[in-house]
Amino acid sequence: MKNTDELLAIATKVLDNAYAPYSHFSVGAALLTTKGEVFTGCNIENSSYGLTNCAERTALFKAISDGERDFSTLLVTGNTDGPISPCGACRQVISELCDPKMPVFLSNQKGQIAEATVEQLLPGAFVGEDLNHDGNF
């Protein structure tokens, strides 16, 4: 099982792969599965900013596309003054795909690390159970 330092090293390595020619704001993520496998992600920008994909979602989408569904930890890092925090879109995706009690480590390249759970990142998250499945909207 990987520890936080190992996940930070992995996320830091992938941070260099970020495609951020517009914001110059690179982010790296390391997603640990319950089986001990790590999926990485970096942010990938687009000149049409709405088409940009964040590091957290890149890691989650890679894992899902490879058939993985059980995650134990997510670590995110960037070159920020304090521990980096996921955007609202990432928080929603994380809450959809991860257990509410799963730890998420927010870090930076200065060695600062904060910990939260998925549900702490997005309290009152809109989840699948909130959808009306009887066909009436």
Rank of each mutant, 00 (worst) to 15 (best):
Y22T: 12
L75T: 00
F137A: 15
V93F: 06
S48V: 12
G50N: 11
T80W: 05
S72F: 00
I44S: 09
C87Y: 10
P83F: 08
L60P: 00
Y19G: 13
G88H: 09
K110S: 14
G135V: 08
D70Y: 04
T52I: 11
A29T: 11
A116N: 12
P123A: 15
K13T: 13
S95F: 03
Y19V: 11
L122Q: 01
C87I: 02
P21S: 15
K110C: 12
T4R: 06
N132C: 14
A114S: 14
S107M: 08
L7F: 05
L122K: 01
N108C: 11
I44Q: 09
T80Y: 10
N108W: 05
G41V: 03
P123R: 05
E129R: 09
Y22E: 14
A18Q: 11
V14P: 07
Y49N: 13
T58I: 08
L106E: 07
I84G: 01
V38P: 01
M1C: 04
V104H: 06
K101A: 13
N17G: 11
V38E: 01
C54R: 05
E6H: 11
F71P: 00
V118L: 05
K101M: 14
T73Y: 02
G50C: 15
N43V: 09
L97D: 04
D66N: 03
A116I: 05
E6N: 08
E129K: 04
F126Y: 08
G111I: 07
V27C: 11
A59Y: 01
A29C: 11
D70T: 02
T73E: 03
G88S: 13
N3I: 07
C42A: 12
G82L: 10
L51F: 07
D134N: 07
F126E: 11
V93Q: 02
T77F: 08
I113L: 09
T40L: 03
L106P: 10
A18H: 12
A89N: 07
C98A: 09
T73S: 03
K62H: 06
S107Y: 12
S72T: 03
N132V: 13
I44R: 08
V104L: 08
C90I: 04
Y22W: 09
G28T: 06
G78C: 11
E68T: 00
K110L: 15
D81Q: 08
G124W: 13
I84N: 08
I64Y: 01
L131N: 06
K2Y: 07
G36D: 06
E115K: 13
P123W: 10
H24D: 13
D134I: 14
V27S: 05
